[in-house]
Design a protein around this nucleic acid. Sequence first.
DNA 1: AGCGCGTTTTGACGTCGATCAAATCGTCCA
DNA 2: TGGACGATTTGATCGACGTCAAAACGCGCT
Lengths: 228, 228
Amino acid sequence: MGNGDIKLNNRDRAVLMKTPFMHGLTGNSLVKMLSAMSVETVSARDLIVREGQRAEAFYCVLNGYVRLYRLSRDGRDADIRISAPGDTFGECMLYADRKYPFFAQAAETCTLVRFDLQTVKDLAEEDPGISRAVMTTLSRHLISTMDCVANDRLFTAPQRVANYILSRCPVDGGPAAIRLPFQKSLLAGMLGLAPEALSRAFSSLRKTGVTVRGRIIQVVDVQALREI
Amino acid sequence: MGNGDIKLNNRDRAVLMKTPFMHGLTGNSLVKMLSAMSVETVSARDLIVREGQRAEAFYCVLNGYVRLYRLSRDGRDADIRISAPGDTFGECMLYADRKYPFFAQAAETCTLVRFDLQTVKDLAEEDPGISRAVMTTLSRHLISTMDCVANDRLFTAPQRVANYILSRCPVDGGPAAIRLPFQKSLLAGMLGLAPEALSRAFSSLRKTGVTVRGRIIQVVDVQALREI
DNA sequence: AGCGCGTTTTGACGTCGATCAAATCGTCCA
DNA sequence: TGGACGATTTGATCGACGTCAAAACGCGCT
């Protein structure tokens, strides 16, 4: 703890500084915040937090992707959220139960910043800027999680995949190509699908002009995807 | 606006005062908060907010139930959350987009308190107690919405119904009876089911000792429900 | 360029839940 | 108490998605 961001490379530092937690911090608050932070590197498949474990920290992803999920008694798992670089997770524990309500697992090698919950909570009492950062982050997460519920309940697999593609496409209506930033199995979990269902959804989108080769997705007509 | 809580009956006032927004407020903040509030009564099926509408307020339910939902292009709707007495909704707009991401509809006649977003936002800057209330509420909503995603993805209809019953049963393991506080169709939407599916889930629970008559649900053995 | 392993795709099949329609139930009112 | 109306249940059918197994692919390695 307390080793600050000294070891961060430029890219990681830039990601961290763009988060609301670090963005507009004044001198003294910044110093204190740095003392509440430490940097961690975890390997693919490592567990970062366990459901039911007492919560003492929340995390910011600098590099890689983290899978938040829950298990059923018979061992099946369901993803709740995928945290990308710049995202935090576990910040909902600042003002709630003491136990994590999910597992967090590194989907690949990840660089994380760990924030001590109690310290940040204390800081938030003094610095409205930090409170604001917490509220902003919580609000966004709440809204995106509500989106997730609505998507699951309203849309079929091909529609959810189309929505995902659209969310990563430039806004114009013409052709586009995107590169998935992670494995398809992770995308499947993110959309609440089995990998096989994701694969079938992609092939059902071929007739709408979607071509998939490895992680590259090409779209003939972005506008047409919207009509699905 | 600004008519305060003068018109509230005792029950409604008690509900309001138990919310984190009003609970520990000091004199001056309390006065200001009161000036940001107004009381509204809405009839069954009235829309309280519309998706896409510019957000200028959030709400606290004092009486009745409010359905937050989204529509698909072809007119189907999906519930995202049911707000019960004591719950707030729309508070995620304090630090996020300006447009509501859902519709809110009174499921029955409701009494609500309307909070002006900008005023509360300004108040939160000065009063850490208010910030704390916002963060507490957002955290709880985020966690319960994550629970919702996990439930949808992990459990079948009968399991979700069993979970709901258990969440409203006294903790001990023996027999119990509960009364649904709303129509079954609302419960169905809450659990992400069609009303017919809820009905079938109830009847599939008969073999586990669950009896339903109108809004009364009787459970022979609470412990047995947990094993489903 | 060829090999080898983990990921993804495809096929076959079963189950769950949505949908539509019709019957029944509950509750409110006169 | 008898209706009447909306809510709920039941039945029949269908489509979407999960699961398991096997084939194909992609990618990194030498």
